[in-house]
Simulated assay, not measured.
Amino acid sequence: MSLRLSTLILPVDRWHEGGRAKWQRAEDLGFHAAYTYDHLSWRSFRDGPWFGAVPTLAAAAATTSRLRLGTLVTSPNFRHPVTLAKELISLDDVSDGRITLGVGAGGIGFDATALGQEPWTPRERADRFAEFVALLDRLLTEGAVTDEGRFYSAVEARDIPGCVQRPRLPFAVAATGPRGLRLAARYGQAWVTTGDPKLYENGTPEQSVEALRGQIAKLGEACAKAGREVAELDKILLTGFTPDRTGPLQSLDAFVDFAGRHRDLGFDEIVIHWPIPDSDFAADQKIFERIALEATAQLG
């Protein structure tokens, strides 16, 4: 199985002071895709620069020509399907059909309360996520949509001319629980995981591999119930949140070993964070670029 290598660029740089250069360099290095987080602020970066995902991706689309672009991930925490759909068809147009929407249920971070709401319970997040994805699918595939939901509604919402990619741009659904996996099986062109969060602090790489094996098996069960082959969905691993953390970026050999084990599990795409000094994503830039240039060839 061939493996695609992508990167995730945090939106922490002013566009004319290093931001644009990173996206251009990602294309020059041959990455399959470059993603960004869709947050209002995030973790330890909260008190520093942090730019919006949609305008960042629009700028990246205008300064690249081959690189796929997308969010990893967008959530209902501060998004509404009607306005998001309009922004997505615009991004897909500007990029000439290079946008992937990574979408997830969201969590309890800063985004969860930035609009003044109380944090949603896990059940409410799951309920909202299901309605959010279903309505977004309709908005991106139908010319006009009226729908009254429990959480999200649309009244004569028009998204003309629709996406460049048909019938719509691809969804990469982030999920590990049964309800999220059912959404991935029904609506996803790809599935995203960061591994098992319970193993992040004290787990081992071997335990992480087994947990991921179990997640892929559950995805297969959800696909079977939805009448789809699990092979129809790309399987994306966003790294940096498994017990290995930055270990795979210590050398080309370490990454090839890591990537090979996860390719053998069934992953089609591995995403590595663009290095940021003095952060959880610190890594040697030269090693990172060597991995980008050489790893996929070594993996076959």
Rank of each mutant, 00 (worst) to 15 (best):
T204P: 00
L136T: 05
Q189L: 02
W15Q: 04
A154P: 01
V230P: 03
S279K: 07
G300L: 11
V73C: 05
T242D: 03
L57V: 08
V54F: 13
L238V: 09
V256R: 04
L233D: 03
C163G: 00
L5H: 09
P119T: 09
L199D: 03
A297V: 10
L233T: 10
E17N: 12
T83H: 15
A60I: 01
E289W: 09
C163A: 07
P81C: 12
A184P: 01
G52N: 09
F45G: 06
A157N: 05
A292Y: 06
T56L: 10
T56R: 12
T239G: 09
L135V: 07
Q215K: 12
P205L: 04
L91V: 14
T194K: 11
L29V: 05
A85W: 13
L265A: 13
A130F: 07
A112K: 08
A295T: 07
H80P: 12
K86I: 01
G116L: 05
T121Q: 02
T141W: 05
I287L: 07
G227R: 13
A175H: 03
T246S: 13
D196W: 01
P11T: 12
A224F: 02
S75V: 08
D47Q: 14
A190Q: 06
W15V: 08
A259L: 04
L101R: 08
L84I: 12
R46H: 14
S44Q: 15
R245M: 02
R186E: 04
A254H: 10
R98E: 12
F78R: 11
G109V: 10
A26V: 07
R290V: 02
Q165W: 10
E124K: 15
D278S: 14
T100C: 00
Q250N: 13
F255L: 08
V155W: 15
L299F: 00
L40N: 07
A53V: 05
T239A: 15
F267S: 03
V164P: 01
R123Y: 04
W191E: 05
P11Y: 02
V145Q: 00
A172L: 08
I216Y: 02
Q117L: 09
T141D: 08
G18H: 14
P197H: 02
R263C: 14
V192T: 03
G220A: 10
R158E: 15
E289V: 03
Q207F: 02
P248A: 14
A292W: 06
A130K: 02
G260A: 08
V173D: 08
E206G: 09
Q207R: 02
T56Y: 05
R79D: 05
F129D: 00
P11A: 06
L101T: 08
G70P: 03
H262N: 15
T113S: 14
C163W: 07
L69F: 15
Q189D: 15
P178Q: 15
T194F: 13
R213C: 04
R213N: 04
L10Y: 14
S208R: 08
R138G: 06
A211F: 00
L57A: 11
T193L: 06
F171N: 03
G48W: 04
Q165T: 00
E131F: 14
G162T: 05
G180Q: 13
D111H: 09
D196I: 05
L67D: 13
T246A: 12
L249T: 02
A62T: 14
G18Y: 08
D127M: 13
D284M: 09
G300C: 07
G240N: 06
A154H: 09
G102W: 01
